[in-house]
Design a protein around this nucleic acid. Structure first.
Lengths: 203, 203, 203, 203
DNA sequence: CATGAATGAGCATTCATTCAT
DNA sequence: AATGAATGAATGCTCATTCAT
């Protein structure tokens, strides 16, 4: 398995570069995150990044995919462990918010990319990612809400809007972290949001 | 009053530059919004921007202040016209969301700055702006909620969290504009959010 | 004429850069002629070249245009001063060869560009320039030959081929300069070529 | 004879690389012909080129030697088959021009190298190759002219200049290929040049 | 007040070359 | 013999800023 070994080394480097990119995005933000800044944090030359990724865009896309997959699977795992629609919804909220605390750098990196990167046609990523087909998280949330309505657990409401309100409650916390955290710690925030949303959907 | 006249001209220039900056941010995003791109849209030289603003950061900060004041006063005006806490809350939600539609370029520019700019110490603006002291909007929202509770209109809930949930519901809409808008138009979204939040706060 | 003065300065800089580019091409060849090498010879920063020319390609094209115009007018001036077809032909050969001696750096720069530069579509310049419509020199040479035949000074021959043979005799000298020059100096070469070509065209 | 076998393999590799280099030069020109472009066309790694040639310059020089030897022997073969000086001269012209048609890629590669490569001292190759000692073709051409004069077939003329004129007539055709070819095909060009030169040398 | 001219610093990327395997 | 991995140097180019006019 010579080849397997070789790709293992390359794969390890790519992972290392991606981790360094996350660190860079977290520390100095998207605008200043040049290849040389990433290389510095990875302890390698900038040319090596170009060797392993065809483009800066290519690197960013790989990074974004990784971050999305990671957060998605984290949330999915917790949702799948729950049974009723209400429990799944609570698990969804809790996991989404917990992820921010357990992976702060990854979370910041995700924000930095989504709100800064643009396609070559100048379309911001934040106007792309919430496409239902491409965002399994949003799809899952809507599924939970639909099923809860079908099973009679939840009352009637506009699913798309409710999903957006829930996502907003989750996302808003991570943007306001430092100030709000002083007053409201994460577990309190989770409990309160779960309570507010529960009473908004429960029959 | 030669000096007064000069200030007036200078002030007009500064406004012109700021308007061009808004247009630039809206059209090509923060990352590509160089001084020369802004100057091109203002029909002036880049050097003139440097003359009127000590820094690019200085320009961005003035621009941000203007955008915040503008949206703040827009929302405040609508809130002040309402009477009961519930009416004020509804007005707050409606005005916040309407602003996105009536001032799309300003709104996009605001997002671009908040999520891209960082202080010299590399602290992202989105971790700064929701400081209660600096964000009169958030303060007003909390005030509405407090007064509603005091007057008995609203039930008991965690005001900081509820304020965050409401802000989240508002902000989330503007990030997901293109996809969600196809399904849910603004007035529907406003009605639904008002309904959801109302039943979450009403006694 | 403020504006005239300003463009005069800019024009002077552009000329200075173009002269430096000629020197650079002559000294180190096309392949190594980077903007920084040109800037070094001009005693300015590379950024200033980018300020005055939109592109490296743009600079090269301006340079090429200048070199072609210069050599063309040099040759034309001498041809126009002659009367009969034979005299014009002799003047053409003499002037073409003399130009190489009087403007050696310009001549080398011309060769370097023509044989090295390629269009974005990868077509070498040397397959472009000898287009009759774009190369007034070749057109003039053919005209002389045609008129000589019409007036009865010259005998019958294939004008396109004869023109090519004459151009070849001229160009070949400049590629082999150092070696041939040791044996055959320019005036000897001119005399001999004039003699050879004369007897090839004369009736 | 292990070593002999190894040399044989190595020699085959070197040839393969040289062939790939010719293809590369023909397709994308000297400036863009990087080792990686050559390696891609050879189906090997760039490192292997560095293994078989000490330098890029070394590769270019081997390639040039090969191209020169090839065209030289092609022309020589045809010249040696002829008898009288006049026949030899005609064969020389015909073979030189035919080679361009029968080996177009090799011919283009030759031009690309000769007009682009420079020695470390920045002397262009086109000012080197026509050294009589290093260019057996030019030597042969002069020999034909000398012998023709000695045998009384040719009249008196300056041999060095005449050789240059003939070489110029040959070389010029390959630079102007696309435009001239539309009007004058190769066999016509050969016939006309042979005729022009014949009457220039014949007694 | 306004600009054209100018620059140093930084950018992403490519290159020829080296080296361990 | 052959390669993937790695790098320092160089490329063309853009940027925010300064300055003389």
């Amino acid at each position: 398995m010579e080849k397997g070994k070789q790709s293992f080394i390359a794969e390890a480097r790519r992972d290392q570069i991606i981790e360094a990119a996350i660190k860079t995005l977290d520390e100095i933000g998207y605008v200043k995150s040049s290849l040389s800044q990433i290389a510095k944090r990875a302890g390698i030359s900038t040319a090596l990044i170009s060797y392993h990724f065809s483009n800066k865009e290519d690197l960013i896309n790989h990074l974004l995919t990784k971050l999305l997959e990671e957060s998605t699977s984290y949330i999915m795992d917790h949702v799948l462990a729950a049974n009723s629609a209400q429990e799944k919804l609570n698990a969804f909220i809790k996991a989404s918010l917990s992820y921010q605390n357990t992976h702060p750098a990854h979370n910041t990196a995700l924000i930095e990319i989504v709100f800064n990167a643009r396609t070559p046609e100048n379309i911001p990523y934040y106007k792309l990612v919430d496409d239902e087909e491409e965002d399994p998280i949003l799809a899952e949330l809507k599924l939970i809400l639909y099923e809860g309505q079908k099973s009679g657990e939840f009352k009637s409401f506009h699913v798309d809007v409710m999903a957006n309100v829930i996502q907003g409650a989750i996302n808003e916390y991570m943007f306001t972290n430092p100030v709000l955290t002083k007053k409201v710690d994460l577990s309190t925030y989770i409990n309160e949001v779960v309570h507010i949303i529960s009473s908004a959907v429960k029959k």
